[in-house]
């Protein structure tokens, strides 16, 4: 009962009071969080090496790039766009990292440079999507190939290694007194910022509106194109940064670094309950999704399950994450209208 409802409002037409939908409580992001806890507890009790701080910090560090890139990806998917080129930007920046290091640049010069490259890469995506009105799926499939290609042009099949230890430490060591590696600590910080932006600011409100009904958002005075451009730029920037992290973490710059990573990122975003068609999702869900995928991989690895199985598990999770809400809806519908056809509340 809404206390602010005018007292006589319902006099004319009886208000149709739907039962509070159960789905309010069994939201997908809550399920994923529960699943995460179950997996964690299962791991802790079932696998002896799992709940050690060494292992956990390793698992978290291993997740760094996916987790970082998942943040801007969430914003994009909520706004009904997608960026498939993230892993290629990561690869390109990693290759540049190596090439420039080889050419004698200092790390403190290299990192700003590749960040600029990331911004430019994102700008290209964004301009093609917003200025020409092209579908981001098609655009970023193109730039994905383009950027990865450029990575090979930059570095070929060479690998550059031997980066200074202090930087490598930054990418692998944990924050003193915690099992949290530095890159993941940064992720936590950025995740908080992203969560506030998405759920508590005008920009976030705008993103949901754009994803749900772009035309209505535009009519409401929201600068749709500018916001989308910004998202793609941020996505490029974060991917470039992830490229630096990846390079330092593995101590190896290669053109094929992070190949296929975009799929893992999208998998974790969707697993976190963000609707691929835009307009729905929570950052909490995405964080749970990222962690779930990371912990599962780690567990499977500890139990010596072949890496191939991990790929199967990821794929199945992805399918399940979109299929479950569907099936739930179908079941609800079947229960309500045993012979009903399509649900649409048209007059």
């Amino acid at each position: 009962m809404a206390p602010e409802a005018p007292a006589k409002a319902s006099a004319v037409r009886p208000r149709v009071e739907a039962p509070r939908p159960l789905t309010r409580f069994v939201r997908w992001d809550v399920i994923v969080t529960a699943l995460l806890i179950v997996v964690f507890l299962g791991g802790a009790f079932g696998t002896s090496d799992f709940a050690t701080s060494d292992n956990l910090s390793f698992a978290l560090d291993d997740l760094s790039e996916i987790a970082l890139i998942a943040l801007p990806m969430t914003l994009l998917v909520v706004a009904a766009e997608v960026d498939l080129s993230v892993a290629s930007i990561l690869g390109l920046c990693s290759a540049l990292f190596g090439a420039l290091w080889d050419a004698g640049w200092a790390i403190q010069m290299i990192i700003p440079f590749i960040l600029v490259v990331g911004v430019v890469a994102g700008l290209i995506n964004g301009l093609l999507v917003t200025r020409l009105g092209l579908p981001s799926l098609a655009v970023t499939i193109g730039t994905m190939t383009l950027y990865r290609g450029l990575a090979y042009v930059v570095l070929g099949t060479k690998a550059v290694a031997e980066f200074p230890q202090n930087y490598a430490d930054l990418a692998t060591k944990t924050v003193p007194g915690t099992p949290i590696p530095y890159p993941f600590a940064l992720f936590i910080l950025l995740a908080i910022v992203t969560a506030i932006v998405l759920h508590a600011t005008g920009l976030g409100r705008s993103l949901f509106a754009i994803g749900a009904q772009e035309e209505a958002a535009f009519f409401a005075g929201i600068r749709v194109k500018r916001i989308k451009l910004l998202l793609f730029v941020v996505s490029g920037l974060v991917s470039a940064f992830a490229g630096a992290v990846y390079t330092l973490r593995y101590g190896s710059a290669r053109a094929d670094n992070g190949l296929g990573l975009e799929l893992a990122v999208i998998a974790s975003v969707l697993l976190g309950g963000v609707d691929f068609d835009g307009g729905k999702g929570t950052l909490g869900g995405v964080i749970a999704g990222v962690l779930l995928i990371g912990l599962l991989r780690n567990l499977l690895m500890l139990r010596d399950v072949a890496t191939e199985i991990q790929s199967i598990v990821t794929g199945l999770l992805l399918i399940v994450s979109v299929l479950t809400p569907r099936i739930a809806a179908l079941v609800r519908q079947a229960r309500r209208h045993p012979r009903g056809a399509t649900p649409s509340a048209s007059s």
């Binding site: 799929l263 999208i266 691929f276 890496t307 191939e308 790929s311 794929g315 399918i319 979109v322």
Partner: peptide
Amino acid sequence: LVVTLGTLYVIQGLDYY
């Protein structure tokens, strides 16, 4: 896109395994 991405993973995993 999501489904076939999923089956891509699964089929690839089966193949590699």
